[in-house]
C-alpha cells in the first residue's frame, strides 16, 4: 500500500509534469505518424516503378533502417543533423526527424506488402481488359490493398507512440522524461515509473480499441 500512497502523493504534487509530458508524447507521436506515413507512402511507390535503380534504392533504405537499432539512429540524427544543416536545431527536432525516417521504412513495408498480397489474378484481369497501369492501381489494386494495409498500419502507429519514449535519452519533453524529472526531484523511482506506465497503457489501450473497431468495420464491408 506504500506504493499507492506514494503514487498519490507524487501525482498530486507533480501531475502537471506528467500531463505536460503526455502532451509532448502525443504531439511527437502525431507528427511522427503524419510525416512517417507520408514519407512511407512515397517510398512505397519506388518499388512499383519500372526504373530498376529505384528498387535498389528502396531495398537499401529499408534494409538500413530495419537492420540497425532505432536508438543508434536517434544518436546519429542527433549528432549529424545539426552539423549537416546550417540552421539551429533543437534536440526535439533532431529526434523527430529520426523517428519519422525510421517509421517511414516500416510504413513503406506495410504498404508494399499490402499491395503485393492482392491476388495476381486481379492484375491479369485488369490488364486483359486493357486498363492502363494507372487506372489498374487506382481502381483495382489499391482499393483491395487498403484492406490489407489499414489494420497493419494501425499497429504501426501504436509502435510509433511507444518508440517516442526513446526521446527521453535526449531529455526531450515527453512522458518518459517526466518520469526521469520526477525521479531526480523526489529520489523515488518506482512510483513515477508506474504513473508514466499507467498513462502509456491507457492511451495505447484506447488507441488499440479504436484500431480494432476500425478493423472490424473494414471486415464487415468486405
Amino acid at each position: 500500500m506504500l506504493l499507492v500512497e506514494q503514487m498519490i502523493k507524487i501525482w498530486t504534487k507533480y501531475s502537471t509534469v506528467f500531463l505536460s509530458g503526455l502532451a509532448g508524447t502525443l504531439w511527437i507521436s502525431a507528427v511522427t505518424v503524419f510525416f512517417g506515413t507520408l514519407l512511407g507512402v512515397l517510398l512505397a511507390l519506388l518499388p512499383l516503378s519500372k526504373i530498376k535503380g529505384f528498387h535498389a534504392l528502396y531495398k537499401g533504405y529499408i534494409g538500413l533502417l530495419r537492420g540497425t537499432p532505432i536508438l543508434l539512429q536517434l544518436y546519429f540524427f542527433w549528432i549529424w543533423l545539426p552539423k549537416a544543416l546550417p540552421i539551429e536545431l533543437t534536440n526535439t527536432q533532431c529526434v523527430i526527424v529520426a523517428l519519422v525516417v525510421n517509421s517511414s521504412a516500416y510504413v513503406a513495408e506495410v504498404i508494399r506488402a499490402g499491395i503485393q498480397a492482392v491476388d495476381y489474378g486481379q492484375t491479369e484481369a485488369a490488364k486483359s481488359l486493357g486498363l492502363s497501369n494507372k487506372n489498374m492501381m487506382i481502381y483495382i489494386i489499391m482499393p483491395q490493398a487498403v484492406k490489407n494495409i489499414l489494420p497493419a498500419l494501425g499497429n504501426e502507429f501504436i509502435n510509433m507512440i511507444k518508440q517516442t519514449s526513446l526521446a527521453s535519452v535526449f531529455f526531450v519533453s515527453e512522458l518518459t522524461t517526466s518520469f526521469k524529472t520526477v525521479q531526480s526531484t523526489t529520489f523515488l523511482a518506482i512510483p513515477p515509473l508506474v504513473i508514466s506506465g499507467v498513462i502509456y497503457l491507457v492511451v495505447i489501450t484506447l488507441l488499440s480499441k479504436l484500431v480494432n473497431t476500425f478493423e472490424g468495420r473494414l471486415r464487415a464491408c468486405d
Partner: peptide, 20 residues
C-alpha cells in the same frame, strides 16, 4: 499494348472477378 488488349477479351480459370 493496353489499347490492343481492349480488343482481346480474356477469361481465366479462376475467374478473377473484382471482389470489391
Amino acid at each position: 499494348v493496353d489499347r490492343h488488349r481492349q480488343k482481346m477479351g480474356m477469361v481465366f480459370q479462376h475467374f478473377n472477378v473484382f471482389p470489391h
